[in-house]
Amino acid sequence: MNLSSRQIGDALIIRVGEARIDSLIAIQFKDAMRAAVPDAVGPGPEALPVILDLAGVNFVDSSGLGAIVAVMKFLAPARRLELAALQPNVERVFRLTRMDGVFTIHDQAPTDGTQDAA
């Protein structure tokens, strides 16, 4: 599982270096996300954002979608999972399952130069 993370301000940006999050790797994805996010020091007043950069992901199936939801659940309440750079096929799955209403979705992941590209 290829994940790379960087911290920008309060946000932890995790870029997925896999072209697909599907039933083949859904479990590894969950485990890798658990490992990639450091334990938060208890729920503070504001949940710290973890932004999943999906710019390189062109396919998510229902198992992959379930895995992303599972990550959101285990990060809460100390951290809030947000999504960025949904490619057309990925965006469609989120829209059709109405999961697009559950996540904050950014057009692009924030970069060091700009604060937030939402």
Partner: peptide, 14 residues
């Protein structure tokens, strides 16, 4: 509620 979000059951609907 985040804890109650479904993690499956999407396949046949899709």
């Amino acid at each position: 509620m985040i804890d109650d979000l479904p993690e499956g059951g999407f396949g046949w609907s899709l």
